[in-house]
Design a protein around this nucleic acid. Sequence first.
DNA 1: TGTATGATCGCCT
DNA 2: GGCGATCATACAG
Length: 188
Amino acid sequence: MARIDFHASSIEVARNLIGASVFIDGVGGRIVETEAYDESDPASHSFSGVTPRNAVMFGAPGRAYVYRSYGLHWCLNFVCMPAGHGAGVLIRALEPTRGIDLMRERRGLDDLRLLCSGPGRLGQALGVTHALNALRLDRKPFRLVPRAEDDLGRVASGTRIGLSKAKDLPWRFALAGSPFLSKPLRAG
DNA sequence: TGTATGATCGCCT
DNA sequence: GGCGATCATACAG
């Protein structure tokens, strides 16, 4: 995979992103956990149509969708599919590789495993804010690096986290055995 | 190791 | 008015 193609279903993109790396202003690491969402999915922000918050999900693929979770955390998503389908991938956890000192400072703790192991934590560590919403992922401040092919066999799937609807869809993807996951993978 | 709770805001009923 | 694509902290056992 020479580069990441966002003109695909959120499920394909979510799987392809495991093992890839994402950096914001040079700070970030290897993606070890993602979740797929789309317009047909009752758990998705896009399920009930366009609102000011989710409008970016219905626009061009390959852009960032940033939303505020529970009024306090910034969460990072990548928009995918042909434009207008309301599909996206939530980036849930990273293995930190670059800018670790800055991540520790932003998070106020040292433990490498807790820096980016969850969507809210990751957002804080990478300095994600609403200012990044709708920005292209192939331009500054973003940098994406596709995974090496030999990581393919380590991608596992399971059920998503923190949902009350569509709980049983196996749309969570993770690097099997990684110590940087937000929670252990549950079969699905 | 597990369960409860507060923080705090956009969107829905 | 209530409920989240969450997290840190405070407890109980």
